[in-house]
Nucleic acid binder design. Structure first.
Length: 417
DNA sequence: CATTTTGAACCCCGTTTAAC
DNA sequence: GTTAAACGGGGTTCAAAATG
């Protein structure tokens, strides 16, 4: 059976996250998105962990469902921790996704972290002044089956390869435990093609998750597996062995849409490719402050080959645009508007879930239910990658453009006739 | 007047810089 | 030398401004 999995989201206890993020609501929202396995998230937080224990029951080994049986959505005990510390004489800020096999393992980890006086109550994504390598050692002592996956590995501020406070290699960060890093999360601003340029990453498998802070953003990136006997150990095995038979593909943002694709200065609205930023001496040509170097820049700096050489050997991926943004594009209005919400709900109700619309349903079938005729065409165009994007930079999201103004006008006219 | 867009505040803590 | 304040991030949220 096909399982779409999102291993990195947040709860209502994480900073800047929606109050709607509670397990029953997440389970329901996943059904509408087409997500089969989702992170419990935030299990280091005492209040949230209590909620997990009260609300969920184990269904398969290491996988959980709502106690009341109201949803088929599986939960897996994955969470994020934020590490701020010094290593190699430099300040480091790295985010990690932690996979745990059982409630008991989580309980032990939380006890150990509390003993070290970390404030777990402060945030669902606690900040630990804890060196990543030492942290991983501790986790492995508690339970061999716990694994760490570096989160959104290329973003400038909080990641293992980030330009502001990351490293140039996994070894620098994880030392002797580097062999136990067998997966990394590519993040919104990079896609597999970019990551394939590093031979250093041949040992690891690339995963994609949403890092959702609201129900709406669940599964904006995800992993698609073909699994017969679902369990925590089977998921980890597939990752560890890069099992291409079982790990079918990842679902990705177009990397240009991510917030840190290009180099740039958000204050001045300036952005450029990494090659050009050298020309400016790494400084904003307007305000002369240092440019925030984006994901493309870091990949360029660390890459040692063209991606195409190895593409055939890798787990493939599909690039998507969230359905709401597609609808918004077709109407020519912002994706938060009322019209968009209504059309979105209609399509989901008629066609099942968001992922089936984005990945499977035919253009013709979508056209039957879409009020705005450009929507079906936009989905097809997205599937073939024929869209324009103004790349994101310095925290500014990229802007998607599926249709030219002329095309949109033409479509409006044809409806009037 | 209703809707949409834009803008700023908020949460948290380790580090850095400024102030005492 | 010590303490205090500023800084930074992500994205939701609410308020204000702009649009039609």
């Amino acid at each position: 059976m096909r399982f779409i999995c999102d291993f990195h989201i947040h709860s209502k206890f994480s900073r800047a996250c929606s109050k709607e993020l509670e397990l029953p609501k997440i389970a329901k929202a996943c059904e509408r998105k087409g997500i089969n396995v989702v992170a419990t998230s935030d299990w280091t937080h005492p209040g949230w962990f209590k909620h997990i224990k009260e609300t969920l029951v184990e269904k398969e080994p290491g996988l959980f469902v709502l106690k009341d049986g109201s949803s088929p959505t599986r939960f897996i005990l994955t969470t994020e921790t934020s590490h701020v510390y010094k290593r190699g004489g430099q300040a480091r800020r790295v985010h990690l996704v932690v996979f745990a096999p059982s409630i008991e393992a989580v309980e032990k980890v939380n006890k150990k972290l509390e003993a070290r006086k970390f404030n777990l109550k402060a945030d669902g994504r606690p900040i630990l002044g804890f060196d990543c390598e030492n942290y991983y050692s501790l986790l492995k002592e508690i339970d061999e089956r716990i694994i760490i996956v570096p989160a959104h590995a290329w973003t400038p501020w909080f990641s293992v390869f980030g330009s502001k406070s990351g490293f140039d290699s996994l070894e620098e960060c994880f030392g002797k435990l580097t062999p136990e890093i067998f997966a990394i999360e590519t993040g919104l601003s990079s896609d597999p093609l970019m990551n394939w340029r590093l031979s250093a990453l041949d040992k690891v498998v690339l995963v994609s998750n949403s890092d959702a802070h609201s129900l709406d953003k669940l599964g904006r990136e995800a992993n698609v597996f073909e699994i017969e006997k679902l369990s925590y150990d089977e998921i980890v095995r597939i990752l560890r062995e890069q099992d291409k038979k079982r790990f079918l593909y990842t679902i990705e943002f177009f990397p240009e849409e991510g917030k840190y694709h290009f180099d740039g200065c958000a204050d001045c609205g300036f952005s450029c490719r990494s090659k050009e930023s050298k020309k400016y001496g790494g400084r904003c040509p307007k305000c002369k402050k240092l440019l925030t170097l984006g994901v493309e820049n870091r990949v360029d700096a660390l890459a040692d080959r063209e991606a195409e050489v190895v593409a055939q050997k890798k787990i493939p991926y599909k690039s998507i645009v969230p359905l709401k943004e597609i609808i918004a594009e077709a109407y020519g209005v912002g994706s938060a508007s009322k019209k968009i919400k209504t059309e979105y709900e209609d399509l989901i109700n008629n066609l099942g879930n968001e992922f089936s619309i984005l990945l499977d349903v035919s253009e013709q079938e979508i056209g039957k239910f879409a009020k705005q005729p450009l929507i079906a065409k936009a989905v097809t165009r997205m599937r073939s990658g024929k869209i324009d994007i103004k790349p994101g930079y310095d925290g500014v999201f990229g802007k998607i453009k599926i249709f030219s103004e002329a095309e949109r006008k033409k479509s409006v006219q044809s409806r009037l006739l």
